[in-house]
């Protein structure tokens, strides 16, 4: 598993139980009034989180995108216009001007936690 940068995390907030998230896919959670997209890479045993808002058109839709990888690096494609974003650093792989905010994720006692700065 990738080492998550945890130093900046002020607080881990419980999002939801694991079974609420679809396998090999994404779902949105509401954390302190903020929409966050959480991705469950079941086959690889990894989790990622990003902002849910697409930076292209401002739609709350990233969580509904298809997940996968490019050259082994995890990514998600926005369902609206198919722009792909890296889940490691949030960079848009198809259009440099867009960037997603990413969040650290951890799983404990069957629950998914999101790290807030």
């Amino acid at each position: 598993m990738e080492t998550q940068i945890v130093t900046a995390v002020k607080e881990w907030i419980k999002a939801a139980a694991i079974e609420n998230f679809p396998e090999n896919g994404g779902a949105a959670v509401l954390i302190n009034g903020e929409q966050i997209a959480v991705f469950n890479f079941t086959n690889e045993g990894r989790w990622y989180a990003t902002q849910n808002r697409c930076p292209h058109k401002g739609e709350m839709a990233i969580s509904r995108g298809l997940t996968g990888d490019a050259d082994g690096h995890p990514k998600v494609a926005c369902p609206f216009h198919k722009r792909s974003f890296s889940l490691e650093d949030g960079k848009c792989l198809t259009d440099e001007q867009y960037q997603l905010k990413t969040y650290p994720v951890k799983v404990e006692d069957g629950f998914v936690f999101i790290g807030i700065e």
Binding site: N20, A27, V29, L30, Q35, V38
Partner: peptide, 14 residues
């Protein structure tokens, strides 16, 4: 499976 947030019944205010 048809819900916006998996941890809340709030609707998408957007």
């Amino acid at each position: 499976k048809f819900r916006h947030f998996v941890n809340s019944d709030q609707i998408d205010e957007n």
